[in-house]
Design a binder for these strands. Sequence first.
DNA 1: GTCTATAGGAAGATAGAC
DNA 2: GTCTATCTTCCTATAGAC
Lengths: 195, 195
Amino acid sequence: MGRTATIDEGELVARLGEAFRQFGYEGATLTLLAKVTGLQKASLYHRFPGGKEQMAREVLDNAQAWITAHILDPLRGPGEPSARVAAMVRQVDEFYRGGRLPCLLNVLASGESMQGPFATDIKAMMEAWIGALSAVAIDAGCDKRRARGRAERFIALLEGSLVVSRGLGTVQPFRDVLKGAALELLGDQRSSRDS
Amino acid sequence: MGRTATIDEGELVARLGEAFRQFGYEGATLTLLAKVTGLQKASLYHRFPGGKEQMAREVLDNAQAWITAHILDPLRGPGEPSARVAAMVRQVDEFYRGGRLPCLLNVLASGESMQGPFATDIKAMMEAWIGALSAVAIDAGCDKRRARGRAERFIALLEGSLVVSRGLGTVQPFRDVLKGAALELLGDQRSSRDS
DNA sequence: GTCTATAGGAAGATAGAC
DNA sequence: GTCTATCTTCCTATAGAC
């Protein structure tokens, strides 16, 4: 409608997020961020007066909201544990573009940014994810300790599979982890073939 | 003895490696690299005419040599599979400083450097590691397909546990993966408690 | 709210003395 | 082989017109 050719806010943050994930925090220069968003540097500063750090923070907040809504809530919600895990798998596959896009939590935990501005959010996100995975494992009959172990282990497996996929140049490791998610989290409940 | 106060070559590359692992390729500025080595920038360029990229490459080569000698060879060498895995675990623990130091393969696969100058070496190193792990699993009675799967899975678990350890601010996930390495790679051979 | 233009500084890399 | 001093380029950030 009678509007000037301005970029949508959600799309803007999404593009910034992709750039940070692909190139890392220091690797994502403002010139690059301007290019991928189609805006000029000054326009980016108009929307993010805090500069690059604010951009990364909003990307992180956005990811947290998306993950909470699309992954964590369904994971805790009603339904059979195996169905909930299957739903998570679909969303995770989308979130990581089938294994082609690195994890923001990995990328932003590098360098100075570690004990720096993002550490708290990263830790909170990981713990929220582990908590939700624990919950579904508990619903499947695990005791708390074992559930927590499986959850941590699955997150590690997921993050690691992204690293290995990138290193080997094939998304197969990522796919394998997604395929084995139910078995990994819920244990052997006669719902999977051997692997 | 009658020598000027010049830094040892091995120590030099080791310090550079630590810096790259902690701060990433773009995060490790020449000013920082000069600081951690105790040399001036010009001195670094004297030893590495190719600049930062050459430094990273030599760090990578050095890591490859160390891993081959201390981890891969013993893994293939003689001895009981479980003893070989135990030996690997000790060396891996040292290599990653008990889980406190990120993996070079993860850190250098970021950004442009991905399809860039290090991709080939990173892939080769991962495949060498996976190959050696497969070998020990085969010696423990696995068929080839399953051995390869376990090896890939273990590398992912290891890489991911470093990411999670960094994110959560505790090396416990890394420790857990090392503790479960034998079970993970060799299967349940009545040599481990449940976990 | 977006742009062009530019300030100010840090980055990678070199020159040349010792 | 290491240093001080410097070059050039790129980066983050801002000023100000439209």
